[in-house]
Computed example of a mutant assay.
Amino acid sequence: MDFAAGGQEVCRCRCKERPMKALATFIMKGRMQAVMVAAVFTVLALLITPLGIASSAVIALVVLRNGVREGLLITVLGGVALSALGLLIFGQPLSLAIAGLLLWVPMLVLGELLRATRSLRLVLEVAVILGALLIGMQYLVLDDVPKFWSGILDEYSAQMMDPNVVSDADRKLMVTEMAPWMAGGMGAAWFLQLALSLFLARSWQASLYNPGGFAKELRELRLGYWLLILVPVLLVIGSLSDKPGLASQLALVGMTAFFLQGVALVHGLVQEFKANQGWLLGFYILLVIGMPASFTAVSAAGFADGWLNFRARVRARKPSGGE
């Protein structure tokens, strides 16, 4: 189906549809709508960072539905639109365009890979590799990675933190503790953004063309055994040094991947037990309140599920012929 035909099909939906589905419907109406939404979300992401996920998801949705050529065209047109906005807002036409391309280009690759393979697991594993490459590039290009991040964090925190609220000594201590982990944190954050953008795009696609499809994929998500072996090895190697090294930084990306599997595990168990959806709401509330300990707990649960496959065990215990 071509882009215009896809737009005509989704326009037949009812006015009572949910906001996210309505947004997906608007994106799929045509090229200009997709360009506008992607560009607007990129600009808003300068104020509200998580909106960058929605911006990337627009490109992924177009690729998933209409292929990489259409996605590339939307990316080019969006870059032109961002250049114009950058000139009007900042007097610098390239700044916003570069930011948009950094968000969108990886989604062309991952979106097309998901479209071709229909394997969410495989695409997430490729995203893990991309996150690891970002970490490796820092160690390849920078002479002293912790020192580099220490300088950036020190300058940023000095501008953002009120010395009357946070003393200079406490601020410097925070910088000292955070700087050694920033390389891995950046890689893990980039991986998580790529993954969440794919999840959002896939949920939009499913809501328009295959209701319930993404929910089923998420509930069944399990990562490959190579990560189950690699992450503990990296953690052991990292524990041999007093300071966080490359192995420890890479392990952060792997832990983030298993965090997503842990989330998928919770969704799967709620479905298997036919539990009230309020359990999911409670889970996400506890997840936010309990950070960062909850992140570690969910990652550990996801890692354990990789070996023990809790969802399959629960399914096997059900009476045959019954739900």
Rank of each mutant, 00 (worst) to 15 (best):
261 Q>L: 03
119 S>M: 07
28 M>N: 08
26 F>M: 03
253 V>D: 00
279 W>F: 15
176 T>N: 10
284 Y>M: 14
182 M>I: 14
65 R>N: 09
305 D>V: 05
188 A>C: 05
89 I>M: 13
321 G>T: 14
175 V>A: 00
202 R>C: 10
79 G>D: 12
2 D>V: 13
129 I>K: 00
193 Q>A: 14
193 Q>G: 08
177 E>V: 01
172 K>D: 00
49 T>K: 04
319 P>F: 10
253 V>T: 10
66 N>A: 03
50 P>F: 01
236 V>G: 11
49 T>D: 15
88 L>Y: 03
215 A>E: 14
101 L>Y: 08
90 F>Q: 09
259 F>W: 02
127 A>C: 01
236 V>I: 11
163 P>G: 07
283 F>G: 12
165 V>R: 09
27 I>N: 01
222 R>I: 03
6 G>M: 07
38 A>P: 02
67 G>Y: 02
69 R>K: 12
91 G>C: 09
251 A>L: 08
257 A>E: 00
303 F>M: 15
290 G>W: 05
47 L>P: 04
278 G>H: 06
65 R>L: 11
193 Q>Y: 03
47 L>F: 11
84 A>Y: 07
65 R>P: 05
268 G>T: 06
35 V>S: 09
295 F>S: 10
83 S>G: 08
271 Q>L: 04
75 T>M: 07
110 L>K: 01
207 S>G: 04
192 L>I: 08
153 L>D: 00
187 G>E: 05
222 R>F: 05
319 P>S: 13
176 T>C: 04
179 A>M: 05
221 L>N: 12
198 L>C: 07
14 R>G: 15
183 A>D: 14
68 V>N: 07
62 V>Q: 03
16 K>Y: 03
29 K>R: 13
190 W>F: 15
8 Q>N: 05
93 P>W: 15
285 I>D: 11
25 T>N: 02
52 G>A: 13
205 Q>I: 15
279 W>V: 02
174 M>L: 09
313 R>Y: 09
196 L>E: 15
321 G>Q: 13
185 G>V: 06
71 G>Q: 08
13 C>K: 04
155 E>S: 03
78 G>Y: 09
219 R>P: 02
221 L>S: 13
39 A>L: 02
155 E>C: 00
119 S>E: 04
83 S>Y: 10
185 G>D: 07
92 Q>P: 01
306 G>E: 01
241 S>C: 02
